[in-house]
Simulated assay, not measured.
Amino acid sequence: MRQSYGLPAPIDLSIRLYTLLLAAYPGRFRAEYGHHMAQVFRDVCRRDYRRRGLAGMTLLWARTSLDLLRTALEEHIERGIEMNREKFIRWSGWALMAGAVLFAVGLIIGSFDSFDMDPIGGVDAFYEITQAVGLTLGQVLFVFGLLGLRTGYTGRSRSLGARLLLLAVISSIVSFGGLLAMSSIEAAWQIWAAGFLAMTLTLAVFGIVAVRRRVFSRWNFAPILAGVGVPLLFGVGTVGVGTVSGTAPEWASLVAVVLTAFGLSVVGYRMQAEASRTAVTT
């Protein structure tokens, strides 16, 4: 197992990623508290890794990602950044893009884990940590991004679009809850899958509304791309198309993940671009 500075590989990877994420805080805050925060995170990583292995690291990243998102926003606001409507939508757009990338990277790299039952820190530690971090942070950013989508586009999509986006937000929260409970509840995977399926299916239907009402200035088909891949994947797995065991083939899973990530990234890009243009013209 690879080690760096005497640390197990999973802890080393987590510390490196956390150090990069500290860039979300204001510069003065990082200069004053960044080193101490990284040291505390390192100590907690070592403790949770020693006590619970993969489950402990996953729960740690779930807590850390939520706390980082909350405190970074608080620090920016406290230091004079006004969180007006346009800024919230713009940040939500960036969150949706980042969440899509992290989620896709986590799933794709995690699929290379050839030893599903080995403890974290084995030969596939990199794949396991990347998957846990990518999925956890991705889900947090999905919630934030979809809240911004609903805030910015409820009026344009009318009552049906508003209801669909509310359902998408609720579904993303349910999915995130299932992800957090995977280490303690046997049915948590089904909760996560059901929530994510509902989120994407709702986005696909919202995409139809977006195309009809021209919700975005361009690329109104993007929510359909974001939402259609996962429902189709579940359908392929259910009917057993091209499979022996009734599960979807790997190529179908890859296509669904890439399609979902691309669609969400385009939606996020339109959100931040249109919010930026609105802020300039007002």
Rank of each mutant, 00 (worst) to 15 (best):
Y5M: 07
Y5H: 11
G6S: 09
P8A: 01
D12E: 04
S14H: 11
Y18N: 06
L20T: 10
L21S: 01
L22A: 06
P26V: 03
P26M: 03
G27Y: 06
G27L: 05
G27R: 14
R30L: 08
A31F: 00
H35A: 15
M37F: 12
A38W: 00
Q39V: 04
F41M: 05
R42K: 11
D43M: 06
C45S: 07
C45T: 00
R46E: 09
R46H: 09
R47V: 10
D48W: 03
Y49Q: 01
R50C: 00
G53C: 13
A55F: 00
A55S: 07
T58C: 12
T64W: 05
L68R: 11
E74D: 15
E74N: 10
I77P: 00
E82A: 12
I89A: 10
S92D: 02
L96V: 03
M97E: 08
M97F: 06
M97K: 11
V101H: 05
L102T: 11
V105E: 08
G106A: 01
I109C: 09
G110W: 03
D113Q: 07
S114W: 01
S114F: 04
D116C: 07
D116G: 14
M117F: 07
V123A: 06
T130D: 04
Q131D: 14
T136H: 12
T136W: 01
L137E: 09
Q139E: 11
L141G: 10
L141Y: 06
L141A: 10
G145A: 13
L147P: 13
T151R: 12
Y153W: 08
R158E: 15
R158W: 08
R163L: 10
L166F: 14
S171K: 08
I173P: 14
S175M: 12
F176W: 14
G178W: 07
G178M: 02
M182E: 15
E186Q: 15
W192K: 01
G195Y: 14
A198M: 04
T202A: 14
F206Y: 15
V211Y: 00
V211N: 11
F216P: 04
S217A: 08
R218T: 14
W219R: 14
N220W: 02
N220P: 02
F221R: 07
A226P: 02
V230N: 03
V230W: 13
F234N: 14
F234R: 00
T238N: 10
T238C: 04
T238Y: 13
T243S: 15
V244F: 10
P249C: 02
S253Y: 11
L254W: 10
V255S: 06
L259G: 02
L259D: 03
F262M: 13
L264Q: 13
S265V: 03
V267N: 01
Y269C: 05
A273R: 15
A273Q: 09
A275P: 04
R277A: 14
T281D: 00
